[in-house]
């Protein structure tokens, strides 16, 4: 079995073990209502994690994801506060805002050669600030607007008992898997993440791959923001705060190694489920939210250290196998 599959089995195994523990120890965990809600909750983190996974596989990172979610959600809520704008345009505006933010990230990174996490940290500040400017005010005070657009609210509904958001998440995960494994573009992304320089020498357009990664990430952030608004009916300016962190944590748990070249969309999918599951379970145990932060940070540290050791181990085994066969 290849090391890729072993790593995936580990994360799926962890997920199953955790689910069994929670199902056995708490009563309100294993029922259809909780599972459906859990899936919706994880699709919020999960959609962002899918985009984040794409950036990370290509060797980058996007710390502005939270800011993009905030800005897209606010833009959407401004448009959906009246019935004047057709629902489809509201949805498109949310997604487009995300993509434009992603394009700006790409521009900053490609033109200014700034370290990626600093560039996206700064642009994240800018997006959150823009959201403040765009947000609705009455007499200079921020007021949360409720969504009035009926067509838009349909987006937060369920089909066959499952939220549209969850279904979209699953479909897009499959689409991303196909893009990553079956297309030249996906291959180039992996090549760039493994070794940007040698990829460039073999004809990969580094700037283009990097830019597409950021725009895809922006797309997913916009989508997540739009769905969340439709589900909740209103958003505050705190929307998206810390989401980039949760998305990175989801990716890392699912085996998308920071630094690039490893992991895939399915990993990010499983990671998001794992993260939401653990939060949900802790909530059921009545553990205060303060420990959530400690836990999330701890998970990232543990998972990255584990992956570093795991990669060393598999590399050693591979080199041992190759020298063994040659002699």
């Amino acid at each position: 079995m290849s090391s890729r599959n072993v790593r995936k089995l580990i994360s799926v195994g962890l997920l199953v073990i955790l689910a069994i523990i929670f199902a056995a120890t708490t009563e309100s965990f294993f029922n259809s209502r909780n599972i459906i809600l859990l899936l919706r909750e994880s699709s919020y983190v999960g959609l962002i994690a899918l985009g984040m996974a794409f950036v990370i596989i290509g060797g980058g990172i996007d710390l502005s994801a939270g800011g993009i979610v905030c800005l897209s959600a606010v833009v959407c809520s401004r448009l959906a506060a009246t019935n004047d704008v057709p629902a489809i345009f509201v949805i498109l505006a949310g997604i487009l805002t995300g993509m434009v933010c992603g394009a700006i990230n790409a521009l900053i990174n490609n033109k200014l050669h700034l370290t990626e996490f600093v560039a996206t940290l700064a642009s994240g500040f800018v997006y959150t600030g823009l959201a403040l400017i765009v947000a609705y005010r009455e007499n200079g005070r921020l007021v949360t607007q409720a969504v009035k657009n009926k067509g838009f609210l349909l987006l937060g509904d369920k089909i066959f008992g499952i939220h549209i958001m969850t279904l979209t998440w699953i479909v897009l995960m499959i689409v991303l898997m196909i893009i990553l494994y079956k297309t030249r573009f996906g291959l180039h992304t992996y090549a760039q993440g493994s070794n940007a320089k040698s990829a460039q020498m073999s004809g990969v357009n580094n700037a283009m791959i990097k830019a597409s990664g950021f725009i895809i990430c922006g797309f997913f952030c916009g989508l997540a923001a739009t769905f969340t608004l439709a589900y909740q009916g209103a958003v505050s300016l705190a929307t998206g705060t810390g989401m980039e962190f949760q998305a990175i944590a989801a990716c890392v748990v699912g085996g998308v190694v920071l630094g690039g070249g490893q992991g895939d969309a399915l990993g990010a999918f499983v990671g998001a489920l794992f993260l939401t599951l653990i939060m949900n379970g802790l909530y059921k145990y009545g553990i205060p939210t303060a420990y959530q932060y400690i836990l999330q940070g701890g998970i990232i540290l543990l998972a990255t250290s584990f992956d570093a050791q795991f990669n060393k181990f598999t590399e050693r085994r591979l080199s041992a196998a190759s020298t063994g066969s040659s002699t």
Binding site: L63, F245, Q296, G297, I300, T304
Partner: peptide
């Protein structure tokens, strides 16, 4: 990565 993670650990 390390300090992003500890940022949240310390906040907690």
């Amino acid at each position: 990565v390390v300090t992003l993670a500890t940022q949240y650990v310390l906040l907690g």
